[in-house]
């Protein structure tokens, strides 16, 4: 993971992609979001979604899965180069999350992250605050998912 000084506004990265299966959609929904259009193909077809649709929180959780895999990949590469690894802080939250189009069984979503703003933390001098616009795009090129995440990113020299 990069330090605050190494990040620029507008940097965009493809994190990876994930295919949502009917079984995966139903399994997540049975545990966390048991609404009929997330549990049954016929009910999904009758709904506004037009098919068996993943819970919005399933889409968000898969974004995290893809992000963590990408971060591990980046960390391995950085270690191989002998670079120092920045340990990011826990995220305080997010804004403007939009479930723009349904994610249906069989859809493959590619996730992207683009740096939207950078500022210093007033309360924590060793840290900067990053906002990233994270998006998901389906195999037809349609934007299906978007949110603005906030992260605490350490400065290279602890703000000294």
């Amino acid at each position: 993971m990069r330090f605050f000084e190494d990040i620029e506004i507008g940097q965009r990265r493809e994190l990876g992609s994930f295919t949502f299966t009917a079984d995966g959609i139903k399994r997540f929904a049975a545990q966390f979001d048991p609404q009929r259009f997330h549990l049954d193909e016929e009910e999904g077809k009758k709904s506004l979604f037009g098919g068996l649709a993943a819970s919005g929180w399933h889409v968000a959780s898969v974004y995290m899965k893809v992000l963590v895999a990408d971060r591990k990949h980046q960390t391995r590469e950085a270690l191989a180069r002998g670079a120092r690894i920045a340990i990011w802080g826990p995220s305080p939250g997010f804004r403007e999350l939009r479930w723009i189009k349904p994610v249906l069984a069989g859809d493959t979503i590619s996730f992207f992250s683009e740096v939207e703003s950078l500022r210093s933390s007033e309360k924590r001098p060793g840290w900067g605050i990053l906002q990233a616009r994270n998006t998901g795009i389906n195999e037809r090129g349609e934007l299906v998912f978007s949110f603005l995440a906030t992260d605490f990113v350490p400065r290279r020299n602890g703000g000294a």
Partner: peptide
């Protein structure tokens, strides 16, 4: 009829 999203979430 569902939710279009989340305005803000804080952990």
């Amino acid at each position: 009829l569902g939710s279009p999203g989340v305005n803000e979430l804080r952990w």
